[in-house]
Design a binder for these strands. Sequence first.
DNA 1: TATTGACTTCGAGTTACTCGAACTTGCTAT
DNA 2: ATAGCAAGTTCGAGTAACTCGAAGTCAATA
Lengths: 142, 142
Amino acid sequence: MLYTLKQFAEMFNATEHTIRYYTDINLLPCQRDKSNHRIFNEESVNWMQGIACLKGCGASIEVIKEYCNLCRLPESRETLYARYQIILRQREQAYKRIEEAKATAAYMDEKVQHYEQILSGLIPDDSNPGTWTEDTRPEKHE
Amino acid sequence: MLYTLKQFAEMFNATEHTIRYYTDINLLPCQRDKSNHRIFNEESVNWMQGIACLKGCGASIEVIKEYCNLCRLPESRETLYARYQIILRQREQAYKRIEEAKATAAYMDEKVQHYEQILSGLIPDDSNPGTWTEDTRPEKHE
DNA sequence: TATTGACTTCGAGTTACTCGAACTTGCTAT
DNA sequence: ATAGCAAGTTCGAGTAACTCGAAGTCAATA
């Protein structure tokens, strides 16, 4: 199964620009057809999944590249272990992200409740974190 | 309770540069002492909490600014409602983030398992998404 | 033959920091 | 008094990871 740039980008909810960028910096392997257009195969899909996931953990392009480079080195216990270490570290980041997102969502739930109470006229808007008093109110900007 | 730039930055695990940046673009209100140094109070803390949370939802500085501007407009049902809308939208993003992070973590768990199996010598490294075959292996790049 | 649509490269712009240089201030130690 | 130090200041340049747009190529269709 082969994919054009457009199809491939769509599969991953990415822009064609971004996919082009990834191929340009050699993150994502791709072949070219006779008119020099990028073509992607199942392998590209696998790769992109891995890249998207590392990205999802918050890994930088540099780190992802490092991982990719390790993958294309001749396989040995050392390179395998190095890859494993990166994956371990990034997994931790992923779990940290879940917790952060949960805390954020909880805070937002509170805010929503608060606004709903104010809007329904139940309480006045005085306890809202994020309201300035006169003397700390910054100047209008832009 | 008053805080120096350094203390304030520490409280939020941010760099002094970032806090300075936020005050410069008028996101975060701050007063100055007689030697022109920034000083932060409890109100700044509240504000920063709000900003950090919106950031945590993935909101752009522009959106956060918009929210801040609404907060400092004379209070009315409309501005209150507009604020509420922003909060609602961002809360959704926060929940989306939880789901994404969960999916990412699950994928990473699989990867970890996979690597542990390979490293313990149980299976060869052939089924790993993220491994190139000879002909799609990209050139070494920096 | 002309237009269409998807592609190409390349260079400039954007966001949200991030860093460093050069300078000022107030405090302590000699 | 003065020298040094840690903290602050402004300002301008640099960075990551895109993001956009211009100008051009190429194959298929009307």
